[in-house]
């Protein structure tokens, strides 16, 4: 069976083409991230109204929720990129997956620590085995496993494939983990209210949140592109176009 993909898809497989295109995108994404994040933070911290129940502590939402979304999107991206890399033997896809892993892990740390801190004024404890926090913790363990697997292989190509297999296994497991943790949580703590479920947030509260989510995505893309480009250079060091870039940088 031969699946034909549009032309740009095959161009993606060329490291030089990717390096150039990503280099063109990178400054715009950085700029967008800077603007969106500063607008979102000021809007969320200063201009959004306080919550009638939680007061001002709810303002943690503007950094907590986007990082949780990003942590999950990043894992999804790694699995999709890993699958593309395995199916079409595309080195660039593996490099994207590898570059995404540490960023996703740091997003998970942000989500976990801000969630725990938010728990203190809300639940009265620094850590609560809430379903969302617990599944985020397991996601963090999955990230650690994948990063450890990358560094365990001396041969980079084998490490890429191993991590791709593990992230595909992980992505099948994530819904199961989520479901089982939620079930387990209701068994053990019947009356817990979650951090983010609210009776319909007014727009002056969720608009800054939307801005923050977009800002996080832009920041993520900016760092991902940066890491991917350097990894491309590292792996293609023997080829002519990389030597030209190194000579230029002198």
């Amino acid at each position: 069976m031969k699946i034909t993909m549009p032309r740009w898809f095959y161009q993606l497989a060329s490291p030089k083409w990717c390096y150039d295109i990503l280099g063109m995108l990178s400054p715009w994404l950085g700029l967008a991230a800077l603007i969106l994040l500063s607008v979102g933070v000021v809007w969320g911290l200063v201009f959004a109204p306080p919550d009638y129940q939680q007061g001002n502590s709810y303002r943690i939402i503007y950094i907590h929720v986007p990082s949780a979304i990003l942590a999950q999107s990043c894992f999804m991206l790694m699995a999709v990129a890993g699958a593309i890399g395995m199916i079409w033997k595309m080195k660039v896809a593996h490099i994207v997956a590898k570059s995404a892993a540490p960023i996703g892990a740091s997003m998970t740390i942000i989500a976990l620590s801000t969630g725990a801190i938010w728990g203190k004024p809300t639940w009265g404890a620094w850590w609560v085995w809430d379903a969302r926090l617990t599944s985020m913790l397991i996601l963090f363990f999955l990230y650690i496993g994948i990063i450890a697997l990358y560094s365990a292989f001396e041969n980079k190509a084998s490490g890429d494939q191993a991590a791709a297999i593990l992230s595909l296994v992980g992505i099948v497991n994530i819904p199961i983990i989520k479901y089982s943790v939620e079930w387990w949580n209701t068994l053990h703590q019947p009356a817990s209210f979650t951090l983010t479920k609210k009776p319909a947030m007014p727009p002056e509260m969720w608009l800054p949140l939307l801005v923050m989510v977009l800002g996080y995505y832009c920041f993520f893309a900016f760092v991902l592109i940066g890491r991917t480009r350097i990894e491309l250079l590292e792996r293609e060091q023997k080829s002519g176009w990389v030597s030209a870039i190194i000579n230029e940088a002198r």
């Binding site: 001002n56 502590s57 943690i60 990082s67 942000i110 801000t114 801190i117």
Partner: peptide
């Protein structure tokens, strides 16, 4: 921050550090 200064600023600081 309405008495929640520690929590709000601590979480924003952690986020900033990781960024």
């Amino acid at each position: 921050m309405g008495g929640h200064a520690l929590y709000v600023w601590l979480s924003y600081a952690i986020t900033l550090v990781l960024f």
